[in-house]
């Protein structure tokens, strides 16, 4: 588990370094994700030089465990937001209505187009 966590941090670190060195307008962790994906795609070729945690399912277990608790990680920022709700409340219910309706519209537009194009490429389930 420790090696897997270290590997995730290393990918993020390299991602942050690349973002700053090259001035890419992307968050460091997103580049880190791309790096880890590249590593996974090449892991059979790289197997002799990689720590065994990358190939024996440990990395998968650590990552799945982290993602299963993704909700926890939004709590600190969420608590900060609760204390700034005055920014929104002062504008009355209009903003809440706009947020609820627009989120529903975005979800419906997204699934409708996804399903339509999935049918087109013969990927219907």
């Amino acid at each position: 588990m420790l090696v897997s966590l270290g590997l995730l941090l290393l990918c993020q670190l390299l991602g942050e370094a690349l973002v700053h060195a090259l001035g890419v307008p992307l968050p460091g962790p997103v580049i880190g994700m791309a790096l880890l994906l590249a590593l996974l795609l090449m892991r059979d070729t790289l197997a002799p030089v990689l720590p065994h945690e990358v190939g024996d399912g440990t990395l998968e277990k650590t990552s799945t465990g982290l993602l299963a608790n993704l909700s926890l990680m939004f709590i600190p920022a969420g608590v900060g937001v609760v204390q700034r709700l005055d920014l929104v409340v002062s504008h009355g219910p209009a903003i809440l209505v706009a947020l609820i309706v627009s989120t529903a519209v975005a979800l419906l537009a997204g699934v409708a187009v996804f399903r339509l194009l999935a049918r087109l490429v013969g990927e219907e389930t």
Binding site: L9, M33, S63, T64
Partner: peptide
Amino acid sequence: VHFMLGPATVALAVP
């Protein structure tokens, strides 16, 4: 806890 958002984003590569 907030800090773990970064490594969790990297972990999205696994699924």
